[in-house]
Design a protein around this nucleic acid. Structure first.
Lengths: 325, 325
DNA sequence: ACCGCTAATACTCAAATTGAGTATATTCGG
DNA sequence: CCGAATATACTCAATTTGAGTATTAGCGGT
């Protein structure tokens, strides 16, 4: 389609000299029964996500990502989905490097925690980096600090104050007793804007979080992680992606704990099972898991057929206030 | 964070010579009351989406996109969201051009249909390019052809046949009488794989669609459009994005028709209003619209405050079988 | 002034889904 | 054989849906 390229080519030539650099980065999530884990490469002074530059040999972006991850961590990825492409000059570009960087981020889900020694990648609890997101044992303590901090931020902002206040109230459920598990990115963005997270500071200035054993991440990586967690929390509600994290067979409680870990909230046990069963998401293996401490649990497996039956068989979560499970 | 860059830099240098070219492209949607429209540039022999290369002057990707669109179409964008980054070598790269192309696609929603003459962009009905997606007047006729075509494709595929059959059945609701409005991309991908759409053919080979006044789009643009439509159809169900397309004041039926246009299905009128009202999405302006043909309709406006009240006030659509609205 | 057309708006009702429990069944370790 | 601990089953009221029917208000004629 040559003629359609006419004006584009000329426009392109204006920037033909622009050195463009595209990085493929991966948020790789796995789940021990109780904690969601992310694979990181411990660099000094910060942790970074597995990543590598797009190369001409990569037929597709996803293939390129898989290749890098396999090379860096010796891990073969199953489920992969594109997350977002980051490209703000002030947050992505490395100082000293000419040209322009793009970061194409992917979310990957894997079953086991076979972290590989090659390059020393290791699994870290997701909530290490986003400690305010875990409400399974009640309101996280950091939120006290955050709330105080945000209040100052709202006060110090004159006219914009009213809007900031509402945004903060909505994202963090201030005032109300409600918490939206999916607003991960909104919360991160607020904390970034407010200068609460370390990467929002140009200088080495400390922030309240620094004092609280903050685990910083390189470049935009905490933002990418927040994007991934928010997306995943949303997706488990209408697609059976959670099973990408489960072993071949598991108990319904294992499943519930995994979902709770990712969502950061507790669920109503009886209703959770009802949901899983009526949706036909699992089938019995016939075996029992006896190390439960009580009555043995049936082992089940994911019914892959549902993928070809209904279009959106997810797990609409019904949360519970008290945890009397 | 210099040390964290160590191995990355070396990897990068392997491809420092790779000429990377990033294009920002926009699916700009507007809505006349009855039809969803997309802004295209009529190139010969195909239509293309507004697009331009990422330049060093662009502080953010979104800013770059806005700049290109303003320059090419004289249109100022309001709501903009990133859609997807395409980069498969065989679908994106332009023959004859060395190096590698990325296409970072955005979805934009605008209120009016002020197409601009600059560069001759014009509004086209979205269903011109995806005619099988519009079920408002019953099952679209093209689906007969598609069904026949897909059956042959399934037959000609040996072992993979069973899977293909199920995929097709799920995406197009074959066998059942159900239709999932959000599976736009799945359907497009199937038609692409099956060689039904023109752009799937390397040579000038015709396809059944060619014969049926197909309006082809350049490069990957029909795929991008499908991505956009699917995303939008999903999003109106849990975010009040539809109001980005509505004028300042409108009637509830206007709103319903607009939603129907985008979703491609008919809705139950009474329940639609109930939903809009109980969600508190609109407020009365006090005025009436008298050119209705019957009882005058109240004019309402979007209650922007909801954005700061509830986290996901969308329009869960309840479809209807017959259109006795 | 009133009729009938048309569409807006109001109200109804059964079915399905949800939220929150209580009740019963099975193991295990003494 | 008891009690602790869990799994699994069943219940029930409150909402939320899906699908209608009923009523209201202008308009264009006569």
């Amino acid at each position: 389609m040559p003629s359609s390229q006419a004006d584009r080519s000329s426009a392109a030539s204006e920037v033909e000299g622009l050195a463009l650099f595209a990085e493929l980065s991966a948020v790789i999530i796995a789940a021990s029964v109780d904690e969601p884990m992310v694979l990181v490469r411990p660099d000094v002074p910060v942790d970074t996500l597995p990543a590598g530059p797009l190369q001409s040999g990569h037929r597709t972006l996803e293939a390129g990502l898989r290749a890098w991850v396999e090379q860096q961590t010796n891990l073969h990825l199953g489920y992969v989905e594109q997350l977002y492409t980051f490209g703000d000059t002030d947050r992505i570009d490395m100082p000293g490097r000419g040209g322009r960087s793009l970061s194409i981020a992917y979310l990957a889900l894997v079953r086991a925690l076979r972290a590989s020694a090659r390059s020393g990648a290791r699994w870290q609890n997701v909530y290490t980096y986003l400690p305010w997101e875990d409400w399974r044992d009640g309101r996280p303590a950091v939120l006290e600090t955050i709330e105080t901090y945000l209040k100052t931020w709202v006060k110090d902002s004159g006219d914009a104050g009213a809007l900031r206040e509402k945004r903060a109230a909505l994202a963090f459920g201030l005032g109300t007793d409600s918490w939206s598990d999916e607003l991960v990115l909104d919360r991160y963005e607020l904390l970034y804007e407010a200068g609460f997270v370390r990467e929002a500071r140009r200088d080495g200035e400390t922030t309240p979080l620094t004092a609280m054993t903050d685990y910083p991440m390189g470049l935009d990586h905490r933002r990418i992680l927040a994007t991934a967690l928010g997306r995943l929390r949303g997706k488990i509600k209408y697609r059976p992606v959670i099973f990408e994290l489960m072993p071949e067979s598991f108990t319904l409680l294992d499943l519930q704990r995994t979902v709770e870990g990712l969502s950061g909230i507790r669920l109503h046990k009886q209703n959770f099972r009802r949901l899983v069963e009526t949706q036909g998401l699992v089938e019995e293996t016939g075996e029992l898991q006896t190390e439960t401490g009580g009555r043995p649990a049936r082992l089940v497996r994911f019914r892959r057929e549902v993928l070809l039956e209904r279009p959106s068989p997810g797990l609409r979560l019904s949360s519970t206030k008290r945890p009397p499970n």
